[in-house]
Simulated assay, not measured.
Amino acid sequence: MSASKREELVSKALDSFYQGGFHAIGMDRLAKETGVSKTAIYKHFRTKEDLILATLRLRDEQFRNWLQRRTEAITDDPRARLLAIFDALGEWFDEPGFRSCMFVKASSEYQQRDHPIHAVSAEHKSLLARYFEELTTKAGAPEPRELAYQLLLIKEGAIVMAHLHDPKEVTRKAKRLAEVTINAGFGE
Score class of each variant (00 low, 15 high):
Glu179Gln: 12
Ser37Cys: 06
Ala184Ile: 07
Leu51Lys: 08
Arg64Val: 07
Ala174Met: 06
His124Gln: 12
Tyr18Thr: 06
Trp66His: 12
Gly21Glu: 03
Phe17Val: 07
Thr55Ala: 00
Lys175Asn: 09
Glu49Ser: 15
Thr136Phe: 00
Arg57Thr: 03
Arg69Leu: 12
Glu123Asn: 09
Val104Ala: 09
His163Leu: 15
Met161Pro: 00
Gly21Arg: 13
Leu53His: 06
Thr171Gln: 11
Gln62Asp: 10
Phe186Ser: 03
Glu156Met: 13
Ser108Gly: 14
Gln150His: 12
Arg130Glu: 14
Ala162Cys: 08
Ile159Tyr: 00
Lys32Glu: 11
Ser100Tyr: 03
Leu58Met: 09
His44Gln: 13
His44Lys: 11
Pro96Met: 10
Phe45Glu: 05
Asp166Pro: 06
Pro167Arg: 02
Ala40Trp: 10
Val160Asp: 08
Ala80Pro: 08
Ala54Trp: 03
Gln150Cys: 11
Arg64Asn: 11
Ile52Tyr: 01
Ser100Asp: 10
Leu147Ser: 03
His44Ser: 14
Arg59Met: 15
Ala174Asn: 01
Val104Asp: 06
Gly157Trp: 06
Leu56Val: 05
Gln19Cys: 08
Thr39Arg: 15
Ala178Asn: 10
Val180Asp: 04
Ser2Cys: 09
Lys173Gln: 15
Leu89Glu: 08
Ala13Gly: 04
Lys175Ile: 04
Ala88Trp: 00
Asp87Ile: 06
Ile41Trp: 04
Arg59Ala: 11
Ile25Met: 15
Ala3Arg: 15
Ala84Cys: 07
Ala31Arg: 07
Lys5Ser: 13
Lys125Cys: 05
Tyr18Asn: 11
Arg57Lys: 12
Gly20Trp: 07
Pro78Leu: 12
Ala139Asn: 11
Arg145Ala: 09
